[in-house]
Amino acid sequence: MGSDANDGLEALEIELLTQGIFRHYGVDFRHYAYASLRRRIWNCVHAEKLATVTQLLDRVLRDTDVMERLLLQLSVNVTSMFRDPSFYRAFREKVVPLLRSHPFIRIWHAGCSTGEEVYSMAILLEEEGLYDRARLYATDMNEAVLAQARKGIFPMSAMPEYTRNYAASGPKAQLSDYYLARYDFALFRQALRRNVVFAHHNLVTDGSFNEFNVILCRNVMIYFDRELQGAVHRLFHASLRRFGVLALGRKESLRGTVHEASYTELDPVEKIYRRSA
């Protein structure tokens, strides 16, 4: 945490850094939420053993290895299986019945990171008897985390927490039914990803690529500013079938966004919305 520079100077340096990265690499952090982006930038400055944001700009423009490390640091990849168990319970109770009438279900998991929540949804759909007519498109801007997601291998040390989460999500089996314990790792059953497509997609720069029954984007847009959130909401609205379902994080909302009036609330606490217009 380096706050020794004055406000104005720090804000200018951060603007120059995101501008420089965008101009040189085409990766756009210019509309990320400022307060948390600033923290992650300082974490990079310190990890690279530098003193200022401007020094980081100098390094990042000249060294692609630094850029790769920065890309990982600036995108947030903290996630867990069945994060917010009450969301999965609400999904079973309120969304699954809507999906039953569809012969084919397309789900877009936008910003899937290392895949924990994708496997959670696959397990849920399997238990509800919907998996075989579903296809899950799990996307992220970051190839490194996608490679990890494709493997479906998570640390054993996380299993107690995931097992508790799962148990509170209204399950029909045991979480351990879905993985093999191998030393320090839990290998999730390959069959869970038979209908999952992991693919690269950047919400900031890429457009719509299909029409979905469900879009899941939980705790991703909290890292975007209002303007970028608006653009992503337009993208989701254009990618969602009429009466399709949009799920945000528990502490996000459609309030004040461009498409506030285009949705009705399916679950106001879990922030599950249904497209109505």
Partner: peptide, 8 residues
């Protein structure tokens, strides 16, 4: 405004 984060 307020901002939230799920970072580590």
């Amino acid at each position: 405004a307020l901002a939230l984060s799920t970072e580590a």
